[in-house]
Design a protein around this nucleic acid. Structure first.
Lengths: 236, 236
DNA sequence: CGTATTATTGACTCCATTCAAAGATAGTGG
DNA sequence: CCACTATCTTTGAATGGAGTCAATAATACG
């Protein structure tokens, strides 16, 4: 690759409102650009990191999507979250310098990395970046707790929320909010939402009959977003 | 209070292996001691902070216990976690400078505070403390995710885990691991574990019949910790 | 001591799971 | 390109774990 190619840096990244550069000044973005490394591309099934790996740093999805997976002591897998472009992962690895979960590409994916060594440097010299990194961590804490609250709701609401949440997140990233591909099997959707695969299938059919969605294999089209949103927002 | 009274500082705090001072050198502990403020005592039902309050800082329970509560958009309360001495809270407030949940004392309680202003100073001048604060945040992310994984298990395992988890945490704080008071109603335990109050009552009775526990109003005695642990550890 | 809150217990119900079987889809190699 | 296989999805029927409802009992509290 020639030096005249456009470098992948935070300075010219379209995810600057979401990812590492969020909330930073132009100058601060230049600062992190120097330490954040663009990494090579992965394919479906490849791991960004594995549960138990030594902590290398905080990662950010640049393109594609991934799943964060925990394996419990019975060997069962649990899909904790779906990761979209601009989302950070690896905060769980700071605690004991070991990633606590595995991050697995759902499709062709590229990602960037804030290396662990650079973080210590950041803590030393860049308080604004440190503060922003804390805000990213804080956001994850909030999202996890919101997921816990949501998980008490019935199956239909959980699935409706899952679709709307994806839709909202796609929209903020400049993708269509009404049509997107979801590289997950029914099994995986069910695993994530704590539902049997069969329940997911039945509910998707129900939503389809209500003309809320159209499902075409992995492509999901949301036909009536307000009504879908109402399923979990207005439920008594 | 006279100036000759022993000051409450991190230097002489018995929770130094758990709380803010964790992992810090003697000198670093002296540093944080200067910014961490001991606050006045609260009583059952009092709030450490309320959902929506402006972020004041990260708090640490010094004595007593509290519950972290979310109110959803239907007005329903959800007990997200129980907080014991030495545990930090408020990380959720960093994201948008607003506490996302309410922290409510379950009994007479005292707490310390790392004020928000001091945090910026910390980021600037104390990288070791900043790193340690990140580790505390990371730990919370891991705990929340573990709770999500656990919440997929059946009622009996969830309750057994709840009791063992409390027991383990009490032990690390120098309290008895086999006998402790739990200032929660059946309703609240059920709320936290996503169980009906009646189910909690029935399961506690079952554990009692199996001679695993003895319940005396709010006082819980664990008679057979290994067996209780096996309920969620060895389940198929 | 009486009242309000909290806990227990039983009977019944229901949401979601499990089991089972058939159908669709994707991927592979001849 | 089609046949073959593996994987994934759909659908129905039966089951069950935990919830709800309701009535009683125990405890805490002013």
């Amino acid at each position: 690759m020639s030096k005249h190619d456009i470098q992948v840096t935070c300075n010219n990244c379209s995810l600057d409102k979401i990812c590492f550069p969020r909330g930073l000044t132009r100058e601060e973005i230049s600062n992190i650009s120097q330490v954040i490394q663009a990494k090579k591309t992965l394919h479906r099934g490849d791991c960004l990191f594995r549960q138990g790996d030594d902590f290398r740093g905080i990662l950010a999805i640049k393109s594609g999507s991934a799943k964060l997976v925990a394996v419990d002591h019975h060997g069962n897998e649990h899909i904790l979250k779906i990761l979209l472009p601009g989302e950070l992962l690896g905060f769980d690895g700071l605690y004991d310098e070991t990633y606590q979960y595995s991050a697995i590409a759902l499709e062709t994916l590229s990602f960037c990395e804030l290396p662990a060594q650079s973080m210590n440097d950041l803590f030393q010299n860049k308080p604004a970046l440190t503060r922003e990194l804390f805000r990213h961590g804080s956001e994850q804490i909030k999202k996890d707790k919101d997921f816990i609250v949501l998980s008490k709701r019935p199956a239909e609401e959980r699935l409706a929320h899952f679709l709307i949440d994806l839709s909202d997140r796609m929209k903020r990233r400049g993708f269509s909010c009404s049509e997107f591909t979801l590289s997950l099997t029914r099994q995986e959707i069910g695993n994530h939402l704590n539902l049997a695969m069969e329940t997911v299938s039945r509910l998707l059919k129900k939503f389809h009959q209500q003309e809320l969605i159209v499902v075409n294999s992995q492509c999901i089209e949301l036909k009536n977003i307000p009504e879908l949103r109402a399923i979990f927002a207005h439920s008594e």
